[in-house]
Design a protein around this nucleic acid. Structure first.
Lengths: 210, 210
DNA sequence: CCATATGTTGACTAATCGGTCAAGATTTTT
DNA sequence: AAAAATCTTGACCGATTAGTCAACATATGG
C-alpha cells in the first residue's frame, strides 16, 4: 500500500501520526478511563493498525502519560491570564474565563485529568508534588497580596483555587449531566456566556472584590 | 468450613454479605474505574472467594449498577436540608453543609458517580433523565421563588446548582490532589470546617443573600 | 432426622487484551 | 541505484478476566 500523503516528508508524517494518535487516545481515555480504553479502540479511531500504535508509543502507559502531560501543559498555560493582572477582578476574572474556555474546547482532556487524579495520580504524581505545588504556592501568594491590599476579603487562597478549579472543570467533566439537564442539548453560545458571567459575578462578589 | 457467624440467620447473613460486597465494590470501582476494577480485587477486599460474588451479584455490571444506585440515593437525601428552609441562607447553607459532609464521609461513592457521569452515564442514564431532572426542576423553582422575593440576586438557578455540586463534590473527587497540595496530609477537622464556612460565605455573599 | 433450599468454593473456559515479531514497503542517505 | 534507515502490518502469544459449573457444606422446615 502506498503512502497516502506524498507531499510530506517522513519527519512531518511522524509528527502527524503522533498527533493523530494522541487525539484519538485522549478521546478514548476520556470516554472509557485507562482500564476501559483499549489500544484497538484508539487504533480504530485513529484509522491505523494497532501494531502501528506500538511503533510510535511502545506501551499503553507511555501513550497515556503523554496524553496527561499534554493536558497538564494546557492547564498551566491558562495561568498566564492570572499573572498579568493588577488586581483580583482582572486576574481572577481572566483566569475563570480561560478555564471555562478550556472546559468548552477540550472537555476530553479535562476528563482524563480528572480520571488520573481520582486514581490517586499513578502516572503524574511527581507533577502534582513539584510543578502543581509550586504553581499553587505562587498564586496563593498573589491572592494573599490582594487580601493584604484590601482588594478582597480574607479567605484561604487554596479554598478559592479549589472552588475555581471545581466550578470551571465541572463544565467539562460533567458535561453529560449538564446536557441532560439542559433537555439533552449541548449548551448554546448564550448559555456558555451566561455561565461564564454568572460564575465570575458570584465568585468576585462573594470575595468582596470591588 | 463452618460459618463464622453462627448467631445470625441465613437471611441476615445474606444481607451482611451483600453489604460487605457492595462496600468493597464501591471502593474498588472508585479507585480503578469500571474497566480497571476486577471481580477478584473486590472479592479479596471483601474476604470472599470470587465465585461467591457471582452468587450474590450475577455480573460485574449488576454489581456496579447497585453501587451507583446506592450513591444516587444518598445524593438525593442531601436535598432534605434544602426543602425545610425558609430562605436561601438557611436552605443553600444547609445543602452545602450536607454535600460537603457527604464528600468527607463517602468520597468513594462520589468518585463512582463522577466516573459514571463522565462515561456518559451508560448505567444510570434513565435516572438522570427522570429523577435527577425532576429534582432539579423542583429546586430551581424554589430558588426562582427566592429571587422573586428579593432574597437573592437574579441568577440562573441551574448555574448555581452546578456551582454547588462542583465545589462540594470536588472535595471528594479530587481528594488526592487536595491532599498533595496540603503537604500530602488529609484535611484536618479545622480545615474541613474552614472549607465549609468559606464556601458557604463566598456563595451566599456572591448571591447577594442578606 | 430427613428432605429441600440455600449458600460456598476450587477448578475450569472462552474471550479479550497488551505487546511482539518478522517480513516487507517506503523513504532517505551515500 | 545500492545501502541503510525508517515505517507498516497481519499474525501470533502469554496473561488476565468475567463468568460457569459441579461437588460439597450448611441451614431450614416439616
Amino acid at each position: 500500500m502506498a503512502q497516502a500523503k506524498r507531499a510530506s516528508s517522513k519527519k512531518e508524517r511522524r509528527q502527524e501520526s503522533e498527533t493523530l494518535i494522541l487525539a484519538a487516545a485522549e478521546k478514548v481515555f476520556a470516554e472509557a478511563g485507562y482500564g476501559g480504553a483499549t489500544m484497538q479502540l484508539i487504533a480504530d479511531l485513529a484509522g491505523l493498525p494497532k501494531a502501528n500504535l506500538h511503533y510510535y508509543f511502545p506501551t499503553k502507559e507511555a501513550l497515556y502519560r503523554q496524553v496527561v502531560e499534554k493536558i497538564f501543559q494546557i492547564w498551566l498555560e491558562a495561568a498566564d491570564a492570572f499573572d498579568k493582572a493588577d488586581g483580583p477582578r482582572e486576574g481572577l476574572g481572566a483566569y475563570i474565563d480561560a478555564k471555562m474556555e478550556i472546559s468548552r474546547r477540550q472537555p476530553a482532556g479535562s476528563k482524563v485529568w480528572a480520571f488520573e487524579v481520582m486514581h490517586r495520580a499513578p502516572i503524574i504524581q511527581d507533577y502534582l508534588e513539584t510543578t502543581l505545588m509550586e504553581w499553587t504556592k505562587g498564586r496563593a501568594q498573589l491572592i494573599q497580596g490582594w487580601i493584604e491590599d484590601g482588594q478582597m476579603d480574607p479567605i484561604d487562597p487554596q479554598i478559592l483555587l479549589n472552588m475555581i478549579w471545581a466550578t470551571t472543570q465541572h463544565y467539562a467533566d460533567f458535561s453529560h449531566q449538564i446536557e441532560v439537564l439542559n433537555g439533552s442539548q449541548p449548551l448554546s453560545d448564550e448559555q456558555w456566556n451566561a455561565a461564564k458571567a454568572d460564575v465570575k459575578n458570584i465568585i468576585l462578589k462573594g470575595l468582596g472584590v470591588k
